[in-house]
Design a binder for these strands. Structure first.
Lengths: 354, 354
DNA sequence: TTGAAAGCGCTAACAC
DNA sequence: GTGTTAGCGCTTTCAA
């Protein structure tokens, strides 16, 4: 009764009174085969509930039509959730499946995840690397020559196709937007993985995108006219309590910032919370601009002015590039997508912008 | 130079001067085998960069150690992002991988996704079904007798292990919390997939969890003392513009609600936005309680009072139950986890609660 | 136009 | 304690 046995191509062959080869040809539509046979085989296959075993096909073909996605952090993050969705969608579009890992910014986990993916014979990998310098596990040999596309950040090797966003330019634009509106006391709150609590001295930033944001903020400070009067920089663990303390520290400074720039949503949330606790109205008593857009940042009143990155484009492109590399030889390239400022209401106009 | 060829167990056998079987035994540690051989084989395998091919092992074993996750909607949703993360984590913990699909509440996509998963020989499926009555694609035969765990909502068949949260009870608790605080004019904003715009007449709700929330709200209205003076019910497409209009309609009613209950975060965001536009302060001029917690709901000031569901527990349990079923026969069961109210500041105290 | 047979990489029953 | 061998389900030469 309970055969618990898959219907295989042999069963179809037997039921249809032809050979396995003929079934395969009929179903995959290759080679010469009589039209009538095709129809017959297909109807038989259908009627006995045949379902191809992708594993067997993959083993034979040496291709699994599966790509691996190794995401640092996870998809409770407002950037990676959308990126993941975009990647899955585009992969499906191109006939590929996606195996997913997340690694909490941990290099050991990343190595293990890559290992698992390869062991599962993925045809290629999309990777958000933990650190820009740690890529000894990504040699062509260790990767079985499988193509890799790096997203969101760069590695200090040009070996792979890399897709990033122009965070430095966008960060600068954000600062200029603020100073043009009359802000002269600025605060920068930058989440840096690997540090504990927060510090005011610039640490090593192992993630190039974050590094670029910091540089862009700095560019903005330099290029603002008149020069901002003060700028407080805080580098912070990506964690709620530390972020809260960092914001408190900023606001308690002798010359507190009238605007705080945050490098991600977690830091933004900390600003919102502390400002709320102190009865500071966003966009009035305290201004803020954050990296990465989200539905809630848009829905709040006033809406949060954000630097939006083209997440869906990035995800789609990553898949498209990866599969191009899987299916033919493609030279690695660096692609930078443009990020841009979405002006909502969280930046007070301290004076008329020009 | 570029062999582009995987190192196989044959290569290890040749390099180590033993047979394939011995290599397999040494690496998987089964059967009788000399300790020294094990060490030797392992070191050889390591040195020539051998990586097991899970595909081949899976084919042989008839088990892939992979589970399929078919999530309706996607992980930009504040519930499913966390659930997905929890599921991946727990699967990894138990030595399984996860293949993911999302289906935008579309039954055809769901069928295709399940088909793909099975074709990929997943050992079992975790499924968030589109509709409670549509499960013709989920017969034991079509599923190759693979186990399935249903999460978040129920199917109208007891065939599968089902894990849900006690939304009805929690919804009732939320309403009672409000009425005890003196709210007598209530608004209910319920997102229902499949409808266009919004309507005030209760439609068919194909999703049991949403249905339960509506029932729980209704229970709360019945059990409140004194009886609430008014209750406006709106059933709304899960979409920004429609939700905004629905909120406007509520607030423009002859007796507008002093509190709005929302069935999910999208609806909550609409309330926040319209309230903000009208200069209504949350927790003062207008109160709100929503299903599903999120970092931003907690960080806002005042914090949003929410009905939090034990998402991580649900995800972990789903995996644990599924794998139990994969690895041995287990009778389907229904598990209901408790949801609970997190009281923050979004409910005005119109009179002292008892 | 179709069939026979080899083989993808691995494991396990069976022999020695 | 180790080797031989068959076979998981499929595709694709090669031969008929």
């Amino acid at each position: 009764m309970a055969p618990n046995k898959n219907v295989t191509i042999n069963d179809v062959a037997a039921a249809a009174g032809v050979s396995r080869a003929t079934v395969s040809r009929a179903l995959s539509g290759y080679g010469r085969i009589h039209e009538k046979t095709v129809l017959h085989v297909r109807s038989v296959a259908e009627s006995i509930g045949y379902r191809p075993n992708s594993l067997a096909a993959a083993m034979r073909a040496g291709k699994t039509k599966t790509i691996g996605l190794v995401v640092i952090s996870d998809f409770t993050n407002a950037f990676f959730d959308r990126a993941t969705k975009a990647i899955i969608d585009q992969a499906k579009e191109l006939g590929y499946r996606v195996l997913i890992s997340h690694t909490d910014e941990n290099i050991a986990e990343e190595k293990a995840a890559v290992e698992t993916m390869l062991s599962n014979q993925v045809d290629g990998l999309i990777l958000v690397p933990s650190g820009s310098t740690q890529h000894s596990h990504l040699t062509p040999k260790k990767l079985n020559n499988k193509p890799v596309v790096i997203i969101d950040r760069k590695l200090d090797t040009p070996r792979f196709t890399t897709i990033t966003t122009g965070d430095r330019e966008a960060a600068k634009e954000a600062v200029l937007h603020a100073t043009e509106n009359g802000h002269t006391n600025l605060g920068f709150l930058i989440a840096v993985p690997g540090i504990k609590g927060f510090k005011k001295k610039a640490p090593e930033i192992p993630i190039t995108s974050v590094q670029e944001r910091a540089e862009g903020f700095s560019d903005g400070v330099s290029e603002s006219k008149p020069k901002p009067k003060s700028a407080i920089w805080i580098y912070c663990e990506d964690e709620e309590v530390a972020a809260g303390s960092a914001v408190e520290e900023m606001l308690d400074a002798d010359t507190p910032p009238s605007i705080i720039f945050t490098s991600n949503n977690d830091m933004l949330l900390a600003v919102l919370k502390i400002a709320g606790n102190r009865g500071l109205a966003i966009g009035k008593d305290l201004s803020v601009i954050s990296f990465d857009d989200s539905p809630w940042a848009a829905a709040m009143v006033p809406g949060i002015t954000v630097i939006a990155r083209p997440v869906e484009d990035l995800g789609h492109l990553a898949v498209t590039e990866l599969i191009a590399a899987v299916e033919g030889k493609v030279r690695p390239k660096e692609i930078v997508l443009e990020a841009h400022l979405i002006r909502r209401g969280s930046v007070a106009k301290l004076r008329k912008a020009k």
